[in-house]
Design a protein around this nucleic acid. Structure first.
Length: 255
DNA sequence: ATGACTGACGATGTCAGA
């Protein structure tokens, strides 16, 4: 079973690219972020025609998350506990073949002096508290765009990034606290090397020069990590026509 | 180089992204 996460940067702008990617990979479950569209205008039919079920939690212009799955989606939950109708649509989860899959679009944070940065840290703390609702799920996957590069090997220029947005000690603490729930970074189980990124700025030839950040992750609890046979970043997708600035990350699980 | 590019909204610019 293949499970992927992709910040598509507008599902309407990326419909053809996403569908072509699904046709090529036959991915079982694709979690999407930054769909940027209200639920009624999500290109639902194109997914359904390919045999995917959809769970969507969208809004106009900003944010929006969705899960497309070739297996039934059960117990779909949008938003934080007790706040399902939050104005910002950033979290969505469902159970697929017995595993709880949670996908998030963590706030960007704007800059480290801003109110938006404090909001980002608070949002991560709320996410941590919300994970307790999945204590009964034996298999837990948390994926998405976290807008944080975890380690020095995850950024293109350590000295430039140190203490900056996406690589700030407060962000690192918040993410570490999240992983303390019992989650591990699937990619690093297989690929320890530096220079593996999931996002590249559209400007200044960043992709061509591989000046990027690893900010998209698939985190697994021990039960799922044990089943995980492969993890990767589909870097080629970033060089396609009209790409998102993020490229898909994925794992494979044995049955 | 506090730049660059892309998308939404809805307009010939502004905001946000990361």
């Amino acid at each position: 079973m293949m499970i992927a996460s992709w910040n598509v940067n507008s599902i309407r702008a990326r419909t053809d690219a996403v569908l072509a990617w699904l046709d090529r990979t036959q991915c079982d479950v694709l979690c999407m972020q930054e769909t940027k569209v209200v639920d009624g205008e999500f290109p639902r039919d194109e997914f359904v025609r390919r045999g995917y079920e959809l769970a969507i939690s969208g809004q106009a212009t900003y944010n929006g998350v969705a899960i497309a799955s070739r297996h039934p989606l059960e117990d779909v939950r949008a938003g934080f506990l007790g706040d399902p109708d939050a104005s910002e649509k950033r979290i969505l989860s469902a159970r697929v073949r017995g595993s709880r899959i949670v996908t998030v679009y963590v706030p960007n944070g704007k800059n480290i002096e801003s109110e938006a940065f404090r909001y980002k840290l608070g949002w991560l703390e709320r996410l941590r508290m919300n994970l307790t609702q999945y204590l009964h799920d034996k298999e837990l996957l948390l994926c998405g765009d976290f807008n944080i590069a975890r380690e020095e090997r995850d950024v293109f220029d350590v000295e430039k990034m140190r203490g900056q947005l996406h690589f700030h000690p407060d962000e690192h603490r918040a993410l570490a606290h999240l992983l303390d729930f019992g989650l591990q970074d699937s990619l690093r189980k297989f690929h320890p090397e530096a220079g593996l990124y999931t996002w590249w700025d559209y400007r200044a030839g960043s992709f061509r020069r591989n000046r990027g950040l690893r900010i998209d992750y698939i985190f697994l609890n021990d039960a799922l990590a044990e089943r995980c046979t492969e993890a990767g970043i589909d870097k080629a997708e970033r060089s396609g026509p009209k790409p998102s600035d993020h490229t898909p990350v994925y794992i494979r699980l044995k049955d």
